[in-house]
Write a protein that binds this DNA or RNA. Sequence first.
DNA 1: TCTTGTCTTTCAGATAGTGAAACCCTAGTG
DNA 2: CACTAGGGTTTCACTATCTGAAAGACAAGA
Lengths: 249, 249
Amino acid sequence: MATNDPGRGGLGTVRNAVQLLELLAEGPAYHQLTDLAERSSMSIPTVHRLLRSLVLADLAVQDPATSRYGLGPELSRLSHHYLARLPLLGALSPYLSQVRDQVGATVHVEVLVRGEVVYVDRVDSVASSPFRESHRVLPALTTAGGRLLAARGDEEAWGLACARGGDADDASRRAWATADWLAHRPADLTLPAEVAVPVLDAAGAAVGALAAELPGTDPATPEGEARAAEVAAYLERAARAAGRTLGHG
Amino acid sequence: MATNDPGRGGLGTVRNAVQLLELLAEGPAYHQLTDLAERSSMSIPTVHRLLRSLVLADLAVQDPATSRYGLGPELSRLSHHYLARLPLLGALSPYLSQVRDQVGATVHVEVLVRGEVVYVDRVDSVASSPFRESHRVLPALTTAGGRLLAARGDEEAWGLACARGGDADDASRRAWATADWLAHRPADLTLPAEVAVPVLDAAGAAVGALAAELPGTDPATPEGEARAAEVAAYLERAARAAGRTLGHG
DNA sequence: TCTTGTCTTTCAGATAGTGAAACCCTAGTG
DNA sequence: CACTAGGGTTTCACTATCTGAAAGACAAGA
């Protein structure tokens, strides 16, 4: 046992605080203390103190009516500071409007974090539907971009992606890891299908995905696949251009 | 000393970890350990351990080349989970595309967090410029929306906003707190001017702002102000409609 | 009223985090 | 090439600080 695994390394208090944030992130907006204590297998006072500290930092909030706990706005502020300096976004940004115009659909930039796909940037098409899910975060393997990124990631990333559901075998992984582009129609039929291409940095690592919506198209049909290939060509050009401005690792 | 102020309440380790995240959020993308230790007035080993814990949780990253530290992608994942369930966004979402079409410009949803304005949602106009700053986070008092929100906030929020710069006196505050809408052209002339209206919940508290860009318009001129008032009318209608679906507090 | 289910606080004790100092590396320099 | 300077990392004894059992508050239902 090289790692001497106590959960995993790092300061216990930080680990516990982070675990709470992750519990708060799943399921409904607000959670009750008792429940969080049980799910985290920490004692109730400990959870209470941790939550109070997180609330003080605005990383969590406590609903004054029910005194239940949820995630806090400071996460958004920090996230925006992170994204504002993310090389991937800076590199893609100049091309996004053009790609949007070329493909005539909403374009997304996606990254893979802990088995989930996060939509970190977007340019809306003219005909964006009013049913916008602006802040989707989906299990990686349920989206085209997520499949590309998870399959090209390391074992840990792939494992986390599988753990989020959307079953996949090793054959799928090999196919996705080598594909230049991928189209997928989500099981939720209210969401549009999407085509995605990976964005590779100078070292050849997939740092994100560039995806376009395919409203009213089913990539399982021949004409759908033709449309997807056509759109993918535009995406690939932008992804390659952006990739050239990205340094190593 | 009612508060017995040791910095402020909460668990010390969490407070320190959060302080590091805030230091990482300001200035350049990557910071060095020594510098962070000095700025936080914590010992170097302590900062090192905290950062290692944060890196383990993906809340921070360590650049493998320079071994310097920056914010991590998990912040985005958590932030998206937060935003996905934010009542403000759900309430405004159905109206945003329509407002975009009515005003013919990019529309933003903004919230105030710790003295900074965070752009939490956006619908792009057809003619969105390629120089998109998608993930701005600006000192509150340098934007129209931030001024509205800070002025209507409590003392603490107002104080934090002033601390971020963009000087303001009490007269300005009173004017902004009662204004139905506000237009402002940022000092950075590459950014467009914006008009903003507050979004009030059932209790009358300002939970966010709805703003539209005014490209090529200077609200300081008579015709600019007329245009701003016209746009504001559309924004107000959407903000009121959304506000009705927002509960108390 | 009593019960049940919450969130919150207290307090003694030991776990777990702290800082000084030493160690290791890499990069730059004479 | 040896030397220095500047970072990041690790060790270790100490004790500050976090922990958990139990008790306290508070609200909602029966």
